[in-house]
């Protein structure tokens, strides 16, 4: 007597798998945290995506006077239009932050905190290279790790495109 699993797992049976969408498009917000990452984001944004939107926080600097800090005004889309971080995160299923190893990325904390409040998953992609020093990487990790539920250190920029495609962005 052949078990149900044996019958169910044949190639012939695989043809009967229902051919209907099993998910809805995800809103993925990709935020570049520094100038190198912004260049990568611009390159990516030129491609066809389902629901991916690209932003830059490369202009963000830690305010000298915390009293004057505003949540508004520093997040921009790639055309340079100012965007509201909270509004963008509120409509996100996933926030992907891109950072070049060794670069300062103070915006990660603000974005990460906001994602935490809104219960939005965060992924941080650290762009390294074969020449990235341990110190540079450690500096980035110390800054980014607290806000990354998933952190990837990739040696090449091209990984991001594969990742976003795999995540149906």
């Amino acid at each position: 007597m052949i078990g149900g699993c044996a019958r169910a797992t044949t190639a012939a049976e695989a043809k009967f798998r229902i051919d209907a969408p099993n998910s809805q498009p995800r809103n993925v917000k990709v935020i570049a945290l520094d100038a190198r990452s912004e260049r990568v984001a611009k390159h990516l944004a030129a491609r066809q995506w389902s629901r991916a939107a690209f932003f830059t926080a490369s202009a963000f600097t830690t305010p000298r006077d915390a009293q004057k800090f505003s949540i508004d005004g520093w997040l921009k889309d790639l055309a340079g239009r100012t965007k509201n971080l909270v509004d963008e995160i509120a409509t996100a299923d996933l926030v992907v932050m891109i950072a070049a190893a060794g670069e300062n990325a103070p915006a990660a904390a603000i974005i990460g905190e906001a994602c935490g409040v809104k219960h939005v998953m965060t992924t941080v992609l650290v762009l390294g290279s074969d020449n990235t020093s341990d110190e540079a990487l450690a500096k980035s990790l110390a800054q980014l790790r607290p806000y990354a539920m998933m952190l990837v250190i990739a040696n090449g920029d091209e990984y991001i495109e594969d990742m976003l495609t795999a995540l149906r962005a």
Partner: peptide, 18 residues
């Protein structure tokens, strides 16, 4: 159980699948 060769066009990976 996925079948001899899983059809990965139908999967929905998440961040932790990096």
């Amino acid at each position: 159980s996925m079948g001899p060769i899983v059809d990965r066009t139908k999967e929905n990976l998440v961040s932790t699948d990096n």
